[in-house]
């Protein structure tokens, strides 16, 4: 087990290196002089030269890459061009709302989607199944920001149940914190509930055709036991995989949702950095999110044998 985890950890190193190189290449090899973009339209030649020097842009590109990776390994993501603050510190400051949103979404998604998928598989082909599948296609197709605005329109503006926008940290009390998080979490959950419910349903339906299910029924197990103990456990691996993919792809949803609801999280930071062309911040955030994505994949791989002991390392 430990050897496997070590091996998997080591295997992520080339991918991470590739991500770093791709991110570096995007920012350095795209047409246009970063110094000119940063300095603005009416910069003098001296100003441009100074920016090039401080950013190390006057050195050859391979050397820039080495220098940048060296700083990365020391945990130095550089400083914001806009505020001069260290990028790592900015990320830490904005982590809270994003974590709250992501955690809330994962809890809601898993606790809604898996029961929905089980029920749909159980009532396969009947009205309930059709309803779940219709919802699933809908949830998958309606963009998060459209869902978000529909929720704001009906539940905030028309009904007045929730504040329209904004964020209060947990330290201001649980109720104000939770009240402002309900709609963002609902809006973001839709697409993942759709995805996970669909896979749960199809994996259970596939397992239900196996011999051991017939055996379980033959020995007189109730439908509940067959579904929950025999079918669900054996359908765990695809469900786990899709949950992992869902968590990893939460990032895009977080960017959009935070923008709609004005939550001061990492997603909002990405958009601010992009609009201000604050390259070190963009770079740092892309790296962080990519490493998170790789990490989630690693966790899923390690969890497989726990959910399905037939999988050995």
């Amino acid at each position: 087990m430990l050897a496997y985890i070590t091996r998997r950890l080591l295997a992520t190193i080339p991918v991470m290196a590739m991500v770093a190189v791709v991110v570096f290449a995007i920012l350095r090899l795209t047409p246009g002089d970063p110094a000119a973009i940063i300095a603005g339209d009416d910069a003098t030649t001296e100003q441009l030269e100074k920016i090039r020097q401080t950013m190390g842009l006057d050195k050859p590109i391979p050397l820039q890459l080495v220098q940048w990776v060296y700083q990365l390994l020391q945990g130095d993501l550089g400083v914001s061009l806009l505020s001069g603050a260290p990028v790592l510190g900015m990320i830490a400051d904005r982590m809270g709302p994003s974590l709250a949103l992501a955690f809330g979404t994962i809890v809601v998604t898993v606790s809604v989607a898996i029961p929905l998928g089980i029920v749909a598989a159980w009532k396969q082909g009947r009205m309930l199944d059709r309803a779940v599948m219709t919802f699933s296609v809908l949830g998958f197709s309606v963009p998060t920001f459209v869902v978000a605005y529909l929720l704001i329109y009906y539940l905030s503006i028309k009904m007045g149940w929730f504040p329209v926008q904004g964020y209060k940290p947990l330290s201001d009390g649980f109720w104000p914190f939770a009240q402002r998080l309900v709609l963002p979490v609902l809006a973001l959950s839709g697409v993942y509930v759709a995805l996970i419910a669909r896979i749960t349903r199809s994996s259970i339906i596939e397992v239900m055709g196996e011999d051991f299910i017939r055996t379980a029924r033959a020995k007189g197990a109730t439908e509940r036991v067959v579904l929950m103990r025999h079918a669900l456990r054996n359908a765990a691996v695809p469900i786990l995989t899709i949950i992992g993919i869902g968590i990893a792809s939460l990032i895009s949803g977080v960017v959009v949702t935070e923008s709609v609801f004005n939550l001061p999280g990492l997603g909002r930071l990405v958009v601010e950095a992009v609009l201000a062309r604050d390259y070190p911040v963009i770079q740092g955030l892309i790296l962080l999110f990519s490493f998170f994505y790789i990490f989630i994949n690693l966790v899923v791989d390690v969890l497989y044998p726990i959910f399905d002991p037939r999988i050995r390392y």
């Binding site: 590739m18 995007i26 895009s252 960017v255 955030l285």
Partner: peptide
């Protein structure tokens, strides 16, 4: 491994 929306945002 780079979230597609971020990659697209950065490129634009």
């Amino acid at each position: 491994a780079i979230p597609s929306i971020l990659l697209a945002i950065a490129l634009v």
